[in-house]
C-alpha cells in the first residue's frame, strides 16, 4: 500500500515532501501515485534509446522538478545526474542510469498495486 511509512522505508524524504504539500498527507500521496505512474519514465528511456538527447534532456529536466518537489529522493538523485549529463547532450551509454531509475521507480510503483 502507498503510505508515508512505506515510502520512507524506500528512502523517500517524506518529511520534506509533506512540508512542500502543506502537510496534507492524502494530497501528497495522491501526487506521488500520479507521478510514479506517469509515462515520463518510459518516454525518457525511449528518447535515450533513440539517442534523441534533445528530447531526453527536456523530459529529464521536467521529471527532475516533479521528483524534487515530491522529495522522491532515490529517483530524484538519478534524474538529477542524468539531467546534468544530458545538458551537454553527451553521447554515451545511459542504460545503467535508466535501468536503475526504472528499477527504483518500480519498487515504489509496487506499493500502489
Amino acid at each position: 500500500m502507498l503510505t508515508i511509512q512505506n515510502l520512507k522505508a524506500l528512502g523517500v524524504d517524506t518529511e520534506k515532501g509533506l512540508t512542500t504539500c502543506m502537510n496534507n498527507e492524502s494530497f501528497y500521496l495522491r501526487l506521488v501515485d500520479r507521478a510514479i505512474k506517469d509515462s515520463s519514465f518510459e518516454n525518457l528511456k525511449e528518447a535515450l534509446d533513440n539517442k534523441d538527447y534533445e528530447r531526453a534532456f527536456e523530459i529529464a529536466h521536467s521529471l527532475k522538478g516533479v521528483l524534487g518537489n515530491l522529495s522522491l529522493t532515490p529517483l530524484y538523485n538519478i534524474v538529477f545526474e542524468l539531467t546534468e549529463i544530458l545538458r551537454k547532450r553527451t553521447d554515451m551509454d545511459y542504460s545503467n542510469y535508466i535501468n536503475n531509475l526504472l528499477e527504483k521507480r518500480d519498487k515504489i510503483k509496487a506499493l500502489t498495486l
Binding site: T20, M22, F27, S62, G65, V66, N69, L70
Partner: peptide, 13 residues
C-alpha cells in the same frame, strides 16, 4: 507550469 504535479502543489500552497 507544464507539470500537473507542480501546478497542484502550487494550488495547495
Amino acid at each position: 507550469d507544464d507539470e500537473y504535479i507542480n501546478r497542484e502543489i502550487m494550488r495547495e500552497i
